[in-house]
């Protein structure tokens, strides 16, 4: 028991899909729960105060018009040894990049920033949501202290990426690096990328800015 790392899951402005993705490890989920000490997760358990924890997984963007959300963000930074921006909303903004307010009954709430823009995060994971296997991989690496595996996520936390399918065009196709493997297209959660003449064509109407395609591309340094 003493050796287990303590983990908290905190939800900001998100859909909860990133947590569900972790739960979608099905039978392995119990193993996950056994291998860590889950100390806070408002969706799954009754703890009402965020405690100190070795790892705090945060999903969701931060609503700047919600004082409470800003406080939670600060609290998370204070209480977590390692703060992980879990999923594209926390890491990159994702769908909240399109938010602009105007909706009843709180028309003022309209400014959402990624968690990585608000506090220093130790790691960030793109994906809407990241796959169950990936989240499991990260948790396992955290338990084992496998820094080699975690490296891309550590880098991702500081790159303050704005993400979009256009990144592929700018960083890969335009730089004569794209060799047409097609993995970006398969990875896209909204199927926004079609391969034409061996190159990705991104439909900006469908892109939700999740960052997956660029992360998955083997020709970009992450």
């Amino acid at each position: 028991m003493e050796d287990k790392i303590t983990v908290a899951h905190v939800q900001l402005s998100s859909c909860c899909g990133c947590l569900i993705s972790l739960v979608d490890t099905y039978e392995k989920f119990l193993d996950v729960l056994n291998s860590i000490d889950l100390v806070y997760c408002q969706t799954l358990m009754d703890a009402r105060e965020i405690p100190e924890a070795d790892v705090i997984l945060v999903e969701g963007a931060v609503c700047l018009e919600d004082h409470h959300a800003l406080e939670v963000a600060r609290e998370v930074r204070k209480k977590g040894k390692t703060v992980v921006a879990l999923g594209a909303c926390a890491a990159l903004g994702c769908i909240t990049r399109f938010a602009k307010g105007g909706q009843m009954p709180k028309p003022v709430q309209g400014s959402f920033s990624s968690l990585t823009e608000i506090i220093r995060c130790d790691m960030a994971i793109p994906g809407c949501p990241p796959s169950p296997e990936l989240i499991l991989g990260v948790i396992t690496a955290l338990i084992k202290g496998d820094e080699e595996y975690l490296k891309p996520f550590r880098r991702y936390a500081v790159c303050k990426c704005e993400s979009c399918g256009c990144d592929l065009i700018i960083n890969v196709v335009n730089k004569s690096l794209c060799m047409g493997c097609g993995i970006c297209s398969a990875s896209c959660p909204t199927r926004a990328i079609e391969m034409v003449d061996g190159r990705p064509v991104v439909s900006p109407q469908l892109c939700v800015k999740c960052g997956v395609c660029s992360f998955q591309c083997p020709r970009i340094e992450i």
Partner: peptide, 24 residues
Amino acid sequence: TPIRGFERMVVGRPAEFVPFAVMR
């Protein structure tokens, strides 16, 4: 829960975007 404002987010956007947005 802060309002991400999906009802307003989709206005002016092409219809194809809407199902993907509101799923979230």
